[in-house]
Amino acid sequence: MSRNKRLIYLINIGLVLILFAILTILEASGVFTRYTMSILRLVCINVVLATSLNVTVGNLGQITLGHAGFMSIGAYTAGLFAKGVEIGGQNGYLIGILLAGICAGIFGIIVGIPVLRLKGDYLAIVTLAFGEIIRVLIEYFDFTGGAQGLNGIPRMQNFSVMFFLAVICVTLMYSVMTSRHGRAVLAIREDEIAAQSSGINITYYKTFAFTLSAFFAGIAGAMYAHNIGTIGASVFNYNKSFDILVMVVLGGMGSFTGAVISATVLTIVPETLRQFNDYRMIIYSLLLIMVMLFRPEGLLGRKEFHITKVVDKIKTKFGKHSVEGGS
């Protein structure tokens, strides 16, 4: 690792810590109410959800409409695990979350291998179908609590833990996507035939991206289940999948920065619109149409915010040579 890269990493970590410190101070000093904090926790969950869907939609370039299905697998895994195995505490939470990711990931493989042969809108409708099947089955079986849902999941509403979990998830996804495996996934998005003819096993890497995406959706689902304490399958219907997709597309497909920002904005803004409760969804859908009409590529397009670029600018300003390469 070159000195420059090390510097970049340190700056990134520093920025995250500063953001965390600001949020903590605002909480401790009472500027942020309990209600504000509950919204911020939702932001953490939605950031993981949006970035995880960004892996399939933005990076692999395949539209899926069943993301909520993977989220529900994670939520139920974590919920059942926490209720069945009483480890409790931070450790129990983290183990449950990891397990949720793994279960959702396994479902990702099971669903991905057959459906990823399909393309475009066929893939979209089949993933929607899978999402709905998962929902119906959860409601059908008894061990999941059936249509009544699953109650009494131990609450875990520690903001610090959720904040760093989200940061870690996004970082891990980002670093995979900037490794050779991620490049292969991007190449498939750009041109499947050229990717194949360059030696990329497209079945493998499509399944890989899909599974990675499902894994982190599962983690988000687990965070959600522990945050809210009661889950019902109907929450995870196709409308939830649409919501997540909207976050990704509005942010600009393929951009993690965009996904993070739009997940944050799209969580906070509707909450602040609560005073116009009746008109909230109408405004939201109008905005959605407007953004698509006037900026069809999403707000950020494929751009990423790189601290590298900022450092570059500062360095050239002070007459030093520039940093090269990504991340």
């Binding site: 050779r180 490049r183 292969a184 991007l186 190449a187 750009e190 041109d191 035939i193 050229a194 990717a195 360059s198 030696g199 990329i200 393929g254 494929r302």
Partner: peptide
């Protein structure tokens, strides 16, 4: 021409070296 349009020139080659 079938390039990976939105990848850098360097990344186009790196993809091919992935194997």
């Amino acid at each position: 021409i079938r390039l990976f349009d939105h990848l850098s020139v360097l990344d186009n080659l790196k993809v091919a070296a992935n194997k």
